[in-house]
Computed example of a mutant assay.
Amino acid sequence: MSVERLRGGTKKGVYRLGLADGTSGIAYVWHPDEDFWPDAPVDPDSPFQHTTGLELFRQAHDRLSAVGVRAPRVLLREAGGPLGDVAVVEDVRGGTLEELTARDPQRAEGVLAKLGTAVRDMHAHTADPKPHEPLEKLERLEDVVLRQALTNLTASADRVDRLDAVRDRLADRLRTRHADVAPRSRFGLVHGELGPDHVLVDAERDEPVLIDIEGAVFFDVEWEHAFLELRFGPHYRHFANPDLDPARLRLYRLATYLSLVAGPLRLLDGDFPHRAGMLDIVEQNVGRTLAQLGSR
């Protein structure tokens, strides 16, 4: 048997297991030693918690399976073992959608179209808020997003001079956009961090397979769309939805950009090894944040 650590993942270890019969599987390992994120204060009312762990993985896998959206098939789950919590899943060998798009754009178009259908199926699967589940509390989600965005603004402006120079204007922009958002009572199933690097490709069927699913939750679908348009760029047309709430989307765009400044900066306070990539994410999203001052 062979064990190969795979790159990626900031909250869990990901390993390819090669077996004597020539088959392979992927092991997810949740253990403090595999988590690069420094400790942070916990807001019990926030949906933006440290979404990691075997139980969240199980819940997310069940939710996605219920709407026919594919994640790697689970072969084994074990909680509380000597290595921590472990899940072994199928090894989807087609690489990521990000890699396929760079290598074979024409073939990637078919996978993107299927992914667009999967995302629409997820978002159409709605639920009422359930007060016994912190991620789905009766508190208006846009209120929680505003509170977290202001926290991220403070953390980012304290460390980035360009944001510090306009922190009051950004805070006002967040509050103005929040005031434009009307209440909502039903939410769609979202992945939470759906970029082309979090989609594997089944090479035999050219099917998308979602990974890093622990953050899947019922939430405003505009939150997902703010991330989708950022990460998929010109390919966002596969996900575009004319029924989105423009006011909610404006608020969530700015909140997303601030989270992608504050989050990577916090990660870099620890010993995360791939620092250049995180610094690039910070720089890109500082620019996106500042550009929001030029729009309503």
Rank of each mutant, 00 (worst) to 15 (best):
A40C: 04
R237H: 11
L115D: 03
L244E: 04
L83Y: 04
A79D: 01
A102Q: 14
H191D: 02
P196S: 00
H61C: 09
F218K: 09
F232N: 07
D33H: 12
L17F: 01
V166P: 05
L268V: 10
R159N: 06
A179G: 09
A203S: 10
F227R: 15
R248M: 10
L189P: 04
L138P: 12
L153K: 03
W30Q: 03
V201C: 03
G84R: 04
R177S: 01
G18S: 07
G263W: 13
V92A: 02
E142W: 06
D269G: 12
H61L: 07
K12A: 11
L163K: 06
T117A: 15
T101H: 08
H238C: 07
G22C: 01
L268N: 07
A291I: 05
A203G: 00
V166S: 06
R177N: 06
N152A: 12
P44T: 04
L115M: 08
H198V: 02
A262G: 05
L268Q: 08
L97C: 06
V217A: 14
L249W: 01
T101L: 15
L17W: 04
G18R: 13
T176Y: 05
V3D: 09
V221D: 08
F219S: 13
E133K: 14
V74A: 03
L265I: 12
V74Q: 04
V181C: 08
P32M: 02
R93W: 04
R266S: 09
V74E: 03
S295D: 10
A276N: 13
L100F: 01
V14W: 00
F57D: 01
E139S: 13
P38A: 07
V190I: 15
R16P: 00
D243C: 12
G94M: 09
V29I: 11
P32F: 01
A247V: 07
V166F: 03
L210P: 06
A124F: 02
A149G: 09
G263C: 08
P47N: 11
L258H: 00
L153H: 00
H61T: 10
T23K: 10
R7S: 14
V190F: 02
F187Q: 08
L115P: 05
E109W: 00
E214M: 04
D220L: 15
R77N: 10
P129Q: 10
Y28H: 03
Y236P: 03
V160C: 09
A71W: 02
R253W: 01
A255R: 05
S46F: 02
P234H: 00
T101I: 12
T51S: 14
K137P: 10
L138E: 11
V160I: 15
M1D: 08
R184E: 13
V3K: 14
Y257T: 03
F48C: 10
S46E: 05
E4S: 11
R5V: 13
A291P: 01
W223H: 12
G233L: 14
P82H: 11
V14S: 02
F218L: 11
N152R: 12
D168R: 15
D164E: 15
H123V: 11
R173A: 12
